[in-house]
Amino acid sequence: MEQVIINGIYSGMQYALIALGLTLIFALMGVLNFAHGQMYVLGGFVTYYVYGVMGLPFVVGLAATAATLALVGVFFEFVIFRRVLKLSVREESTMLVAAGGALFLESLVLIIFGEKHRGVPSVISGVWKVGDAYMPYGRLLVVAMSALLIGGFILFMQYTRQGRALRALAQDREAAQIQGVNVDNYSMLGFAIGATLAGLAGGLLVSISGVNSGLGTWISIKAFIMVMIGGAGVVPGAIIGGFILGMLESVGYTVLPGGETYLVIFVALIAFLAIRPQGLMGKPWG
């Protein structure tokens, strides 16, 4: 039982980190970023290359990942989404562009990094055994770093000028503009942070799970589940959604090993959304 709870907490922490960036971009721009999983994958490959291939320290790999994905986020917002959002008010336009972006990134990663699954040595080796539960130190490090990143992100959003501007933008774009917030620049900043969070999640987890070019779609699907559980565009909702999904998976694979776990999760999600379509922490009006 201890192992089931620990598995749930560990999965929940990594899922929360993955979902944060997705919900941030949705909150700021109303864009469902289908390329979120592919950004995670790109982040994993950058860390793999810098840490695993070039042999530089893991933190340098993460820094390179953050910088690369921030640039990718800026590119996506400035070159693609800003123009589409100005030209079209139809939501499906941005959805199609995001789906195209996902395919583009996936193909790019396949061409650059190849078809193989890649991984790097654990940053810390060894396993901590408590009672009947096993906790590898590498996983504990990822949990700690994920907690730091999530905490840092919340503090940034809560107590910095940029964070307040981003929150204002998320609450009411026009009112924020009237109050002097540069909507274009802050949209770009928000997209860059969202992409960076996705990339850092990939970078952190490459030491545990590795990465391959085709992983992005599944990462995006799971991120969408978490965001729907917690409430689209709500940061605490994404974190709660991540932990709920992590715990559901952990308990599900223990109790229902025969492949019913995700069937039950999806059925429960449909029933939940039928009762509360805005998710746990979302508002019915958006």
Binding site: N7, S11, R139, L215, W218, I221, S250, Y253, T254, P257
Partner: peptide, 17 residues
């Protein structure tokens, strides 16, 4: 009967059992 879904990155829940 044990299975896992495509795209699984964390195998702790699957392998624990």
């Amino acid at each position: 009967k044990d299975t896992y879904e495509a795209g699984t990155t964390d195998f702790f829940p699957v392998m624990s059992r």
